[in-house]
Structure formats: C-alpha cells, structure tokens
C-alpha cells in the first residue's frame, strides 16, 4: 500500500498531441465571451437581418415583383445585393469588436501579462495570429457566415434560377472580401488595443475610428470636396470592395486609392504591434 507524494509531483505527459500556441490563444479568446448571456443575445440579434433577408427572398419568389419593389436591396439576390447586406452588418461588427476585441491586448498589458506569454515557447506571430483570429472569427460570424447560408438558401428557394452566380461566384467574392478586410480590420483593432492599458480608452478609440471618422469626413467633404472622404476609415473598405462585387462605387475617386490606403494602415498596424509587444516591459 504505497503512500503517494502529497506535495509537488512531476508531470507525466498523457501523450496526446498539444495544440499550436496560436490556436490555444484563439480558442480561449473565442470561447470565453460565449459564456456571457448578453453577448449571446447580441450575436442572435446580429442574425436578425439575415433572417429578414431570407424571408423577403422567399416571398419575392412567391409573389413576384411587388415585394421586390418594396424590399429594395433587401430583395436583391445578385452579388451587389449581398454586398449591401455585408455593409448593413457594419454596426454589429463595430459593437462586437468593441466588446471582444478591445481588451485583447490592453488587458494583457495591464498586468504585465506579456512576460508570462513570452516566457513560453511562443513567437510574436503566434500571439498576434491567435489574438487576430479571435477578432476575425467574430467579424466572419456576422458577415460571411450569413452570406454563405443565404446564398445556398437563395439558390434552393429560387430553384436554381440565379444559377452559377449564386451558388459559387457570390460566396467566393464574399469570402475573399470578408477575409481580406477582416484581417486588416483585426490588425488595426489589435494595434489600437496594444496602444492602451485601459480597455475603456481602446473602446473609445475604436468607436471614433469607426463612426467618428465617417462624420468628420462627411463634414470635411462639404468644404473640401469628395477627396476629403479619404478620412472616412470604414468607407475605404466598402469602396474597395465594390470592385470585387461589381457594385456601384461608394466614393468619387478610383477604388485603387482605397486599396492602397487599407494596405498602408494594415502594414502600419503590424509594425506598431511588433514594436509594442515585448516579453519584458521597459521600465524607466
């Protein structure tokens, strides 16, 4: 009858395969907000427009052009219609990311948590990729996911009337657009989160970036002409995306300018993150 060690015991590995560090970070970050009931309700709310669009689609097939007239872009089943849908989901993206994304790095910085992360076999890429995936996941859950489902659903209810376009081309366009802009948006948000220690300030910064720049750019464009809209952070993404979806341009200058702007601040965000995230804080 042995007496076992009651104090510290060495670890005997079970032999299961460990997960990659970026996946550990992403999984924890994705799952933990789901434990909060208000957050789940918000997610459900973000799917209401998709249900509405689905219902309109169904009835417009049943009752013809009348509803199509009333529904406007809600009833559109072409690529531009889905693009408009993604654009309308924007306020959900803003709110969800303010909740999930703002604390991602700021919270770790608040109590010198990077010292713990980087004492592990972990690279900066693992850390940023893991944290970025969390933000990206919630962007996709309210944009790409409903679009893909609606595309399949639309193909079924219209008995394939929209054909190849709705079954393959629109989902492909939406995937490319959501992944590219989502990745850029996630990086910008992470950079913002790495700038502060207090989540509140990050949230404020994020809201300013999303809505504030839009208001400012609109006011400026009254005096300085359409070029002033370059200061509208969020509009660049949809102006750039209009090319992908063959939709009407959102702004009055070539979409290439928007692509370059997005590329510029995405790279800027990555450079900032590299400088900002260190294993040891430099104390004066």
């Amino acid at each position: 009858m042995p007496v076992y060690e009651r104090g510290y015991r060495h670890w005997e590995p079970s032999g299961r395969a460990p997960a990659a560090p970026w996946w550990v970070i992403a999984r924890r970050g994705i799952l933990s907000p789901l434990k909060r009931r208000p957050f789940l309700l918000l997610l459900l709310l973000a799917w209401v427009p998709a249900v509405v669009k689905g219902t309109i689609l169904y009835f417009s097939v049943q009752s013809g052009d009348l509803l199509k007239l009333l529904g406007g872009t809600w009833a559109d089943v072409d690529a531009a219609g889905f693009f408009a849908f993604i654009e309308r989901q924007d306020s959900f993206v803003m709110i969800l990311l303010a909740i999930v994304g703002s604390p991602l790095i700021a919270r770790d910085r608040a109590e010198n948590g990077h010292a713990l992360y980087f004492a592990r076999p972990l690279t900066l890429f693992d850390y940023v990729a893991g944290k970025g995936l969390i933000a990206l996941f919630y962007i996709l859950v309210v944009t790409l996911a409903p679009v893909l489902l609606l595309a399949i659903y639309g193909y079924l209810v219209t008995s394939g009337a929209t054909g190849f376009d709705m079954l393959l081309l629109t989902p492909l366009r939406a995937t490319v657009f959501c992944l590219l802009t989502g990745a850029s948006l996630s990086l910008v948000l992470l950079a913002l989160s790495a700038a502060g220690r207090r989540t509140v300030f990050v949230v404020l910064g994020w809201l300013l970036l999303f809505s504030g720049t839009q208001i400012i750019a609109r006011i400026l464009s009254l005096f300085g002409g359409p070029w002033m809209r370059v200061f509208d952070f969020r509009a660049q993404y949809f102006h750039a995306g209009s090319v992908l979806f063959g939709a009407s341009p959102r702004l009055d200058y070539p979409p290439l300018i928007s692509w370059l702007l997005i590329l510029g601040w995405t790279i800027g965000a990555w450079v900032f993150l590299r400088r900002r995230i260190r294993p040891v804080e430099v104390v004066s």
């Binding site: 919270r107 770790d108 608040a110 109590e111 010198n112 948590g113 010292a115 713990l116 040891v280």
Partner: peptide, 8 residues
C-alpha cells in the same frame, strides 16, 4: 516576474 504577471 516581479511586476504584474497576471492575465486579468
């Protein structure tokens, strides 16, 4: 670490 070292 001495300072901080928590994940709030």
């Amino acid at each position: 670490p001495e300072r901080g070292g928590l994940l709030p």
